[in-house]
């Protein structure tokens, strides 16, 4: 195989896999005559998507908004916590166990508590999205700060640099690749949070829509909802991959250069 065909194939691979999976799915449903309320064929799901596009769009926009608001708060809090944990051993010792504890509680179990405090709908959805997204950001930023070379710290301290100087000039820029890498993970987790909360306690949103569809055995509509969630997740993920490449290219280009031996 010539290198150029290999590269073309590499680009085509994800589409080939998606296309063939859908084809196998469609064929299997028809071949074994699977009933629609158990597993609808892809074509049926697409029909549902088109037929119910109005409620799907309005509900997914609601979910998207909750996700992004929760994620936005998660970015702020995660960045702040990450910088605190990464730059002070005392804060690390005090906060890290608690953060791990918070992170290991299943968020579905927290939603009822949130509903008790905030009612149903948007507030618990935003909060759950936030709770799921801040942790990877905080941990990544803290890790990035911890990679500051001690020699460089000595060089700067000998020049009279304060801890804040070192944080601003070296620590934070160095942790940016970790920060942007965590954003793409965090934003998909924020979707998970928003949808969980909507499924449990909401009258709007794609999670609520799917729950309604399930209670009426409209399986095709449920799958349509799943596809919309996946699509939104992938798009926001790609958005942050793009930002990552733009902002912290120096961190990844380094590897490219080394790989090509340049």
């Amino acid at each position: 195989m010539s290198p150029s065909t290999f590269r073309k194939l590499e680009v085509a691979m994800p589409w080939l896999v998606i296309g063939s999976s859908l084809a196998i799915w469609e064929a299997a449903v028809r071949l074994f005559a699977v009933r629609e309320f158990i597993l609808p064929a892809p074509t049926v799901v697409v029909n549902a998507l088109i037929a119910f596009h109005e409620p799907i769009i309005s509900n997914s926009l609601f979910t998207l908004m909750n996700t992004l608001i929760g994620f936005g708060i998660g970015v702020g809090v995660g960045l702040f916590l990450g910088i605190m944990i990464g730059s002070s051993r005392l804060v690390y010792a005090g906060l890290y166990p608690i953060l791990v504890g918070i992170n290991s509680v299943p968020k579905a179990a927290v939603v009822p508590v949130l509903v008790l405090w905030m009612g149903i709908g948007q507030p618990p959805a935003i909060t759950t999205a936030f709770l799921l997204s801040f942790f990877p950001i905080a941990v990544n930023v803290a890790t990035g700060l911890a990679t500051t070379e001690p020699e460089l710290e000595d060089v700067l301290r000998s020049l009279g640099a304060s801890a804040l100087d070192i944080l601003l000039k070296v620590g934070i820029p160095r942790s940016m690749p970790y920060f942007f890498a965590s954003l793409k993970v965090a934003v998909t987790l924020a979707f998970v949070g928003a949808v969980i909360s909507e499924t449990i306690a909401s009258n709007d949103g794609i999670g609520y829509l799917m729950l309604q569809a399930a209670s009426q055995f409209r399986t095709a509509l449920m799958f349509a909802g799943l596809i919309v969630i996946a699509a939104m997740g992938i798009l926001t993920y790609l958005f942050f991959v793009l930002i990552e490449q733009k902002v912290t290219g120096w961190a990844t280009r380094k590897q490219d250069v080394m790989m090509t031996g340049g």
């Binding site: 020699e151 000998s158 020049l159 009279g160 940016m176």
Partner: peptide, 18 residues
């Protein structure tokens, strides 16, 4: 305390990649 009239360099160049 830290002297401000010194310059330092180590085996590791520690230049900032960005």
């Amino acid at each position: 305390g830290p002297l401000k009239i010194v310059g330092m360099a180590f085996q590791n160049p520690t230049l900032l990649p960005w």
